[in-house]
Amino acid sequence: MPFTPLHLGLGASCKAIGYRKFSFMIFAGTQILMDLEPLFGLILGWHTLHFYTHNLIGALLIGIISIFIGKPISEFTLKTIFKEKHWQISWKVAVFSALTGSFSHILLDAFMHADMYPFFPLSKSQVLLGLIPYSYIFYGCLFGFLLGGIGFLIRES
């Protein structure tokens, strides 16, 4: 299923640890951009859903796109919806958040998707596939989301 919320568990943990040095919104936006390819694949009936965006080169390109669209969108959202008038996301935070989002996405997906080749075009090997059971990934991300959310709330108060 595209747009899986599982990836957000890592983002929530990173936000709790990094706090203002990490943008959860840019991270989450990157997750959505990464999964546009599988979404189109499901709609159009492609046989391979995780190919162009789900490798190191694709993750780098999606990460770069996320930096330049995620920073202004996130700042606008923080200022208008959350009323954080003086909030500014630095370019360093935007780069770190977007690239963490894109590369962690392919790492997590490499463990569970048989149609994914993280080292393409250099190799079509799937060295990580099945290395970690899906249930471990699922519950690990869920636990990371809960723990990260609690950690963030504690830091905010």
Rank of each mutant, 00 (worst) to 15 (best):
S125L: 06
Y19W: 13
G70C: 10
P5V: 13
Y117H: 07
F96S: 03
C14P: 00
I106N: 01
Q126F: 07
M116Y: 02
G58D: 07
M1D: 04
A12G: 04
F103I: 07
F120N: 04
A28N: 13
G144L: 15
W91G: 15
S13P: 03
S102K: 04
A94Q: 03
I137S: 03
A12W: 12
F68M: 07
S135I: 14
H105V: 05
K15Q: 11
F68V: 09
T77H: 14
D35Q: 06
T30I: 10
F152V: 15
C141G: 02
A98Q: 11
Y136V: 15
N55S: 08
Y117D: 04
T4C: 10
K79I: 09
F24D: 02
Y139F: 15
A94V: 11
L33Y: 05
K15Y: 07
F27E: 13
S66K: 03
I89F: 03
Y134K: 03
L42K: 12
Y134N: 07
H47Q: 15
G144K: 05
P72K: 14
G29V: 11
V93D: 07
E156T: 10
V95F: 12
K79H: 14
A16H: 13
H113T: 10
M116S: 00
Q126V: 09
P38L: 10
H113C: 05
T30D: 04
G101M: 13
I132S: 04
T30F: 01
S90L: 15
S123Y: 02
I81R: 10
L147S: 15
T53M: 12
C14N: 09
L131R: 12
L146T: 12
I65H: 00
K124Y: 08
R20I: 06
D109A: 06
F27N: 03
E37H: 01
L122D: 04
L33E: 07
A114W: 07
C14K: 08
S123T: 14
F152P: 01
A110Q: 05
I69L: 13
K15T: 11
L61C: 15
K21I: 09
G130P: 00
I69V: 13
F82M: 11
P118R: 09
L142E: 14
F40Y: 01
L42P: 00
G149C: 09
I69S: 02
L56G: 00
I64L: 11
